[in-house]
Design a protein around this nucleic acid. Structure first.
Length: 823
DNA sequence: CATTCCCGCCACCGG
DNA sequence: CCGGTGGCGGGAATG
């Protein structure tokens, strides 16, 4: 069929098109392509430029010249056709145009409706292409379908939430391990896989890990018309989500197409490396990647492994912070116990459902996990009682607005602004964004030495019968494996802050936990303590490193455990009873998420329509809906709710977490900025930097850091090699930042983002994993290939090359085997 | 030749 | 039953 036709058509098209034939139905002449396009801010321009290869650009210029001066009067289609350049028709470009039409952060009030027909027409493309774009946007919840030809534009408001959710789901799915496995396999390829140990692992992964997953819904919009969110969502959307998950889960946030494709395929059917299928998958991934690139969430790079150079993409989007919200909730929870709590649980459940795993039996609870949970709960209590607990603060403000914030908090923004000063444009942008977003500084401390993963005796763990609601708190603790460390976040803005935090693994600095700091912190420390048995005082810097890592891991694990538990519960999701139960159980907990009958997760942030619609009927719905209402996005304003609801509302709104200042998302640069500032001396002239004093001030203010402690501006930064190359920049920054951290205190250790330990630990904790000492950590594996490595034991030594080794106070410069190169 | 990915056929599905 | 959706894969551009 196609075979025959295609050739003809194409032949025809290619030629005729060139000439000028275009059976466009489009009456109005589009000619938006030209410079006249209203690109969104600077970013778009940049993107465009970067996107377009030099050749194209030159071509464009030529075109302009030839065509006519940039006269407005279009000479018509003539030149239009003249751009046969394939690139000009690229999805990425098209996506840019598309995005240019809508604001990143549309106000709720606006009528952000998208009519596909219109758009297609205006952009002068076939509808089909629009679908491609919209579908991936949908996967990020940047748009939602309202009806037939209509979509609602949400922009980046929920983006952070979506990412968080995706990350979580990704973690639950053990994507990290899957990636690992694939890489390993490929590495040892024909070597055969029947290897003893590997085999086991492979098996387990293969059968168990892959699960089918359906679209991950977030808050806000799904339900509406049942019709709208008809299930059966197949690929693109889901594929896009999975793809994103891979980034969020892997530590160097780089994912190669090949791996992604394999994983995406693998899920359904255990691999049968169907070649054509693989090819198709790749094609689709390119489609998705193009859109994501337009969103500036990823960028294309190449990774050079021993096998050669492969196409890959690097995450450039906002770092997905652990779970700020949860953290916040945790803190707040004290004051307001509420239904919110379930949200997390429900969330997990949802995700679980999404990823049905075949073997329930597979889920094992790791004792340590259990312990963790418990400890957390305890912490919570303590926190509650604690005088200084943040809770109070949040409690204080009844008003969801952040105006209510305590004075100290208020200062933060100001500081931030100051910091921003030196930068020309960005600074401004940031400022603008400020209002809406929180500035995030995440500090984490690294652990110098790898420690044995678990010190804790298994026996100790008591098992909890319930799904620990508390876990709501957990999420925050969970840092992506690579970065250990607790981060505290201060939300300047209400939850929805689209704020994309820049929590970048690489930049994470962890302050040692101070005893009295806020809940989140305390949680961590406690958790650690408990788990680790050994150190009660987390506060002391020394042990921190190991602890923190552990903590993270544990947290992670724990979350898994929880979710698993949830699964265990009989059809909890679907049943009212179960729901009720949840409620009661979790009453004390607060989470930002609410359980939704539909099985979708609904983020607080966006529930705008939610309240009207769904609520009324069923009790489940009622419950959910209520919560929804409660959460209604801050932007929209507060929606009146019942008292109980109110509580809930407040919580989310305030989210004041101990310490995390989030920079506006857009400014991915944010993190970098900070870091650069640190080394400003050597660095280019970007100017200013957040002086350490400011930082200290802030930290102290917040209470994260003991008054005495100071974060020095670090001279050490200078050490960092400067490279003019773009790619290197990131690394440098990372290093630098790290260094500075190290200076912070003797206790502080530099922490390399890709540290093995964490992952290592993680893996060790994982239930499903067989007895073997372990496989090499995920990260490690990617970047550092260790020949014999896998079995080395828990020590960092895993990196045979020593790359991973970290010593206190030392600048740690990773040597990557893999090289990432810009396109 | 390899990578990237546009184009559009056509199955499907929701109204 | 029809028109909107969107899976899917050929094969053209590009590298």
């Amino acid at each position: 069929r196609n075979v025959l036709e295609t050739p003809l058509k194409q032949a025809a098209t290619s030629q005729s098109v060139l000439t000028e034939i275009q059976p466009l139905t489009t009456p109005p002449k589009p000619k938006e392509t030209p410079p006249a396009d209203p690109w969104t801010p600077t970013s778009n321009l940049k993107m465009l430029i970067s996107a377009a290869s030099p050749e194209i650009r030159s071509r464009d210029q030529r075109r302009e010249l030839s065509n006519n001066t940039r006269d407005e009067h279009l000479s018509g289609d003539e030149y239009e056709k003249s751009h046969p350049s394939r690139k000009e028709k690229s999805l990425g470009l098209l996506c840019h145009k598309f995005l240019a039409r809508y604001p990143d952060y549309p106000s709720t009030a606006e009528n952000n409706y998208i009519c596909l027909d219109e758009v297609a027409e205006e952009l002068n493309v076939e509808r089909r292409r629009i679908y491609d774009i919209v579908n991936v946007l949908e996967s990020l919840h940047m748009v939602s379908r309202l009806a037939k030809n209509r979509y609602a534009w949400h922009g980046r408001h929920n983006l952070s939430k979506t990412l968080q959710a995706l990350k979580k789901v990704g973690e639950e799915n053990k994507y990290t391990q899957q990636i690992q496995m694939i890489k390993r396999r490929e590495h040892e390829h024909e070597f055969d896989f029947d290897g003893e140990r590997n085999e086991d692992m492979a098996r387990s992964f293969g059968s168990i890990e892959h699960s089918e997953m359906s679209f991950v819904e977030l808050p806000g919009m799904e339900f509406r018309a049942a019709s709208v969110n008809s299930r059966k969502d197949k690929s693109l959307r889901v594929m896009s989500q999975k793809f994103v998950m891979l980034f969020l889960v892997s530590s160097p946030q780089i994912v190669s197409l090949e791996v992604a494709a394999k994983i995406l395929i693998g899920e359904d059917q255990l691999e049968d490396l169907d070649k054509s299928k693989f090819k198709t998958k790749i094609r689709r991934l390119y489609d998705i990647a193009n859109v994501l690139s337009s969103l500036e969430l990823i960028k294309k790079v190449h990774v050079t492994e021993e096998r050669g150079r492969k196409p890959a993409f690097k995450w450039t989007g906002p770092a997905v912070l652990p779970n700020t919200q949860d953290t916040k909730l945790e803190m707040t929870s004290t004051t307001c116990p509420s239904p919110i709590a379930d949200s997390i649980a429900s969330k997990e459940q949802c995700s679980k459902n999404l990823f049905p795993s075949r073997g329930k039996q597979n889920f094992t609870r790791h004792p340590s996990l259990i312990k963790l949970v418990k400890s957390i709960e305890n912490d919570r209590r303590k926190i509650q009682s604690a005088p200084t607990s943040p809770v109070k603060i949040s409690a204080t403000g009844t008003d969801p607005n952040f105006s209510a914030f305590p004075s100290q908090m208020a200062t933060v923004p100001a500081i931030a602004e100051q910091q921003l000063e030196g930068q020309p444009k960005k600074a401004q942008e940031l400022k603008m964004k400020w209002s809406g977003s929180a500035l995030e500084l995440s500090l984490s401390e690294a652990a110098p030495k790898p420690e044995a993963p678990r010190n804790v005796a298994p026996s100790q763990q008591p098992s909890l019968g319930l799904c620990p609601p508390s876990h709501s708190a957990v999420p925050p603790l969970i840092l992506p494996h690579p970065h250990s460390g607790v981060s505290y976040a201060i939300y300047l803005h209400p939850s929805q802050a689209h704020a994309v935090t820049t929590y970048n693994p690489s930049f994470v600095l962890q302050p040692l936990p101070c005893a009295n700091v806020t809940g989140a912190k305390s949680l961590n420390s406690k958790a650690l303590t408990t788990i680790t048995t050994e150190e009660g005082d987390s506060h002391i810097a020394t042990d921190e490193p190991s602890k923190s890592l552990t903590a993270k891991e544990r947290a992670t694990v724990k979350s898994e455990t929880l979710s698993q538990r949830c699964l265990k519960r009989p059809q909890a999701l679907q049943e009212n009873n179960s729901i009720k139960r949840f409620r009661s159980d979790e009453e004390n907990l607060d989470t930002s998420l609410t359980f939704f009958p539909s099985g979708y997760l609904i983020p607080l942030t966006q529930c705008t329509h939610g309240n009207k619609a769904g609520v009324s009927n069923k009790e489940k719905a009622g419950i959910c809906s209520v919560q929804h209402t409660t959460y209604s996005s801050p932007i929209a304003g507060v929606i009146p709710v019942t008292a109980s609801e109110l509580k809930a509302v407040n919580i989310p709104a305030f989210h004041i977490t101990p310490f995390n200042i989030m920079l506006s998302p857009t400014s991915i640069a944010a993190a970098p900025v900070l870091s650069s500032s640190c080394l400003s001396s050597s660095n280019t002239g970007s100017a200013h930097n957040p002086s350490p004093s400011v930082l200290n001030f802030t930290l102290q203010h917040v209470g994260l850091i003991p008054a005495g402690v100071q974060v020095p501006a670090n001279p050490a930064l200078r050490h960092a090699p400067l490279s003019s190359q773009p790619e290197n920049v990131n690394l440098q920054e990372e290093k630098i930042f790290l260094t500075s951290c190290g200076n912070l205190k003797p206790e502080f250790t530099l922490f390399f983002p890709f540290s093995i330990k964490s992952s290592h630990f993680l893996s060790s904790l994982q239930p499903p994993v067989p007895k073997e000492p372990q496989e090499p950590q995920p990260l490690t594996e990617n970047f550092f290939r260790t020949p014999g490595g896998p079995n080395t034991g828990s020590s960092l030594s895993a990196n045979s090359d020593g790359t991973e080794r970290i010593s206190q106070g030392t600048l740690y410069i990773p040597q990557r085997k893999l090289e990432v190169s810009e396109d």
